[in-house]
């Protein structure tokens, strides 16, 4: 009747039709939960989870590795930038301080009305018993032995040795230094002498003068070295012995000689002032 081939074609058509019908019926309602489905899911899902986690981990590691590499590079770069910024900031702070000091020195130079040369302190006395400094200006800039050295706070010292580009300054606080001085208020005269401790003593001041603690001591200009009227320090202590014609005054210098960084060497010789009547 029907050939075998014909039977196969009809069977296939029927199968396709049934399949389509089943699919269209299923599409109208949710699939019922069967035991086989649950079992299969329970069996496979843990492996899915493990594999999925493993893949995610690998992905994460991969992703983080690259992220960390870039973060590490970024961190190194930021660190470099930070260091550069800190260095720049430090340089700027130093420049600002230097500018402030130089401005004060410049303003002070204006008040002196004398030829001066500014110098930087490059060295200090190797011995704790003496107070000298080395500056970076010498005979090439006109610095000579015996010239006074000043700072905005007052007298700094005296040039004692000169090389072509350097000079040695004996500070006013050295025991070998002496400056003819006046008490600004009373015009009492005396000699300022340094002490190894770094303090100053005003000696040979007549007993008759009423000196008070806090009185300002200035240079008299009579020593022929320091210009007149430059501040030296203030009276810290008055020592009036019961006998003798002089009183002795302890003077605190205005300048902090430990922090001396720039000084002015006065190139012009001082004018000889007339002696004030005490």
């Amino acid at each position: 009747m029907f050939s075998r081939k014909m039977a196969m074609i009809v069977g296939a058509i029927i199968l396709i039709a049934v399949n389509i019908i089943v699919l269209s019926v299923n599409s109208k309602r949710p699939a019922p939960s069967t035991g086989i489905g649950r079992f299969t899911i329970s069996l496979v899902s843990p492996f899915q989870g493990i594999v999925s986690e493993a893949i995610n981990s690998v992905k994460d590691i991969w992703k983080h590795y690259f992220l960390l590499v870039s973060v590490s590079k970024e961190n190194a770069q930021l660190n470099r930038s930070l260091k550069q910024a800190e260095e720049k900031n430090n340089r700027l702070v130093e420049m600002e301080l230097s500018h402030a000091r130089l401005k004060r020195l410049f303003d002070f130079q204006g008040t002196l009305q004398k030829r001066v040369v500014a110098a930087e302190v490059i060295g200090r006395d190797p011995s704790p018993w003496f107070k000298t400094i080395i500056i970076n200006k010498g005979s090439r800039e006109g610095v000579e032995r015996g010239m006074p050295v000043v700072i905005p706070e007052g007298i700094a010292g005296l040039v004692t040795d000169v090389a072509r580009n350097y000079a040695k300054i004996l500070l006013v606080i050295d025991q070998n230094n002496a400056v003819d001085a006046l008490i600004q208020r009373t015009r009492a005269r005396g000699i300022i002498k340094g002490e190894p401790s770094g303090r100053l003593m005003l000696q040979y001041v007549l007993r008759k003068h009423e000196i008070q603690v806090g009185d300002v001591v200035i240079s008299s200009g009579l020593d022929g070295v320091f210009p007149k009227g430059i501040r030296i320090g203030f009276v810290r202590e008055v020592n009036k012995p019961d006998s003798g014609i002089f009183q002795q005054l302890a003077v605190t210098p205005y300048a902090d000689f430990e922090k001396l960084e720039e000084v002015l060497v006065v190139l012009d010789p001082p004018e000889q002032p007339e002696l004030d009547d005490p």
Binding site: F130, T160, D161, N176
Partner: peptide
């Protein structure tokens, strides 16, 4: 050399 840089009497060091 030390005396050159020091404020003391020359020859002290």
């Amino acid at each position: 050399v030390m005396d050159v840089f020091s404020g003391g009497v020359f020859g002290l060091h």
